[in-house]
Design a protein around this nucleic acid. Structure first.
Lengths: 143, 143
DNA sequence: TCGAATACTTGACTTTCTCAAGGAAAAGAT
DNA sequence: ATCTTTTCCTTGAGAAAGTCAAGTATTCGA
């Protein structure tokens, strides 16, 4: 049946995605000690893009699929290390946003570089990487 | 510079992979309560392929990047729910392998189906899914 | 202005995970 | 064959991360 075939393909893709992302976070772990981070804090750091408007803590909790109180804990850790700051939202006094400090931007970039260099995706040719980029972009935009 | 361009591409791919796998595990969480599982046990269940020789606990720990004692805990939970069994390795008395019961195979398949249906990758055409499959396969094989 | 909703924090608690130590089986050396 | 070494799993103690319920402050809407 057609349904079965595409189900198998979907399951195979799923398994591959999980395997690769597992490899990536495994690779990430190796560098964390050196940067003085744990995996949960690194996952939060990952979301703090310097080129985008800072996100409210609540939004970060949604992106990480966890309770807001957990973000309170993790961002306090980043703050204590001088990597990020909680700033009040300019328009809404209830909201706090999390912003990287220069030191935080540096650590984040070093983390990304270290992982990207050893990622399984680095084994693909440049052309293949562009194909992959196109496919993933479409998948994400479809959300 | 050329190096910069490919670094940016690699970082972009990385970010996309993390985003999609985040979506996937988010989707997974939604079904877990209904199946009586937690996320860590589901991640273990994921690795227990019925069509492949059962893996030693140590191997499972390596795949999940965690301590073997943690696998002891998680597999005990699966065992208690009747989803898996720890069996002595036929040739090596030190080793224990983890094998799904029929009930465990059923739960695992339902988990995979539920996630695959709502995965971001399901939005791609069948042709695109094949392209993606080819690229990911190559990336994984390069390990 | 007053009630309802939203955002973050705090505290108590559970679950997950790691580390150090220990026992059992296999492998290697003598 | 015996003894040492290594490998694998388990146990127990403890740290870290996560959830939940309650509390405070701010904003929104009637």
């Amino acid at each position: 049946m057609l349904g079965t075939m595409s189900d198998e393909l979907a399951a195979s893709l799923l398994s591959q995605m999980m395997s690769i992302s597992g490899q990536i976070s495994g690779r990430m772990r190796e560098g964390l000690d050196r940067l003085g981070l744990t995996e949960p804090t690194a996952n939060l750091l990952w979301l703090l893009r310097p080129d985008v408007d800072p996100l409210p803590l609540r939004k970060l909790a949604a992106l990480l699929h966890c309770d807001p109180s957990n973000i309170t804990l993790l961002s306090a850790q980043l703050e204590q290390r001088g990597l990020a700051e909680r700033r009040p939202h300019p328009r809404d006094g209830r909201v706090r946003t999390l912003v990287l400090t220069p030191a935080g931007q540096d650590v984040r970039q070093r983390l990304i570089d270290a992982v990207a260099r050893h990622s399984p995706l680095a084994g693909l040719t440049l052309d293949e990487q562009h194909q992959l980029d196109r496919l993933l972009t479409k998948a994400i935009d479809a959300l």
